[in-house]
């Protein structure tokens, strides 16, 4: 958030649907951000922002950036309808999803961003998540919106550049940020950056961008490549996985990576 707001500057209005950030941003009468902030209902990140943007425009303000900052549940699940509607209309705003791969605010329930095999309170170890993570970037790209990108805090320059680039483009922009959650992922808080980097190095979460749904570009080619095992072994939410399970994840990651590389302009 700090990096994103730095990139976007003071002329920004922030919209936060229900998520952990509803709490982090501060309880009444405080705010931990220095830009105007509207908290909004869980399913309305796309539509509430569209209303704000329209109001700015009718009042002659074409400069202010509207940024929705939503969790994965608010994006992949309950807010998908409003998000899809807003980006299909090509509303001029940035929608950032910080993805901690579950409903963390309510105490770690699965979302459709939870990866295959992960533990959550609603996917207990006897029945871990049996379906893959929803490919939200492909869904956004399929709307043919001007700009879609992935980012993580382990690569801050890449993240800041993407927000700056998004700010300069008119129309709908979607930025997908992987966000480790220590209690939800059962990991050491000190490993947040390391795990974020491992996600990229293991190709679990490649860093790339998509322009107009057509031009796919890998923005960070990891200097070091590591097997998926390195990424999952630091996280308790995967500790029940067998060698075959990890192998299965590896195969999927390899296949997705090959698909991405084949699509990407070199």
């Amino acid at each position: 958030m700090r990096l994103a707001l730095k990139a976007l500057g003071e002329k920004t209005i922030l919209v936060i649907p229900a998520c952990c950030w509803s709490i982090i941003a501060g309880a009444f009468p405080y705010s931990s951000v220095k830009v105007p902030l509207m908290h909004t209902a869980f399913e309305t990140g796309g539509s509430a922002a569209a209303g704000i943007k329209a109001a700015l425009e009718v009042q002659g303000d074409t400069e202010t950036t509207v940024l929705t900052w939503a969790g994965d549940g608010g994006t992949f699940d309950i807010g998908l309808q409003a998000l899809s509607g807003a980006v299909e209309r090509n509303e001029d705003f940035i929608y950032a999803c910080y993805d901690n791969e579950a409903y963390m605010n309510t105490g770690i329930q699965r979302s459709s961003a939870t990866p295959w095999g992960a533990w959550t309170t609603t996917t207990p170890v006897q029945h871990p998540k049996e379906t893959p993570k929803k490919d939200i970037v492909a869904i956004m790209a399929a709307h043919r919106i001007p700009y879609t990108a992935t980012a993580t805090v382990a690569y801050p320059e890449d993240l800041v550049r993407k927000f700056q680039k998004a700010k300069g483009i008119r129309g709908a922009k979607f930025i997908h940020i992987l966000s480790p959650c220590p209690p939800g992922w059962k990991m050491e808080p000190a490993y947040s950056i390391r795990i974020s980097r491992l996600a990229v190095e293991s190709k679990v979460f490649p860093l790339y961008e998509v322009e107009n749904g057509e031009k796919w570009t890998i923005t960070v080619w990891p200097k070091r490549e590591v097997p998926v095992r390195e990424y999952v072994k630091l996280q308790g939410r995967f500790s029940h996985l067998t060698e075959e399970d990890i192998e299965f994840i590896q195969e999927n990651v390899d296949r997705e990576w090959e698909r991405l590389v084949a699509r990407a302009v070199q």
Partner: peptide, 19 residues
């Protein structure tokens, strides 16, 4: 669907089911 303060209802049902 989870929502504070109802979530534990669903979590426990999910545990009953898993067991």
């Amino acid at each position: 669907y989870p929502i504070t303060p109802q979530t534990q209802i669903v979590e426990m049902l999910s545990e009953f089911w898993a067991e």
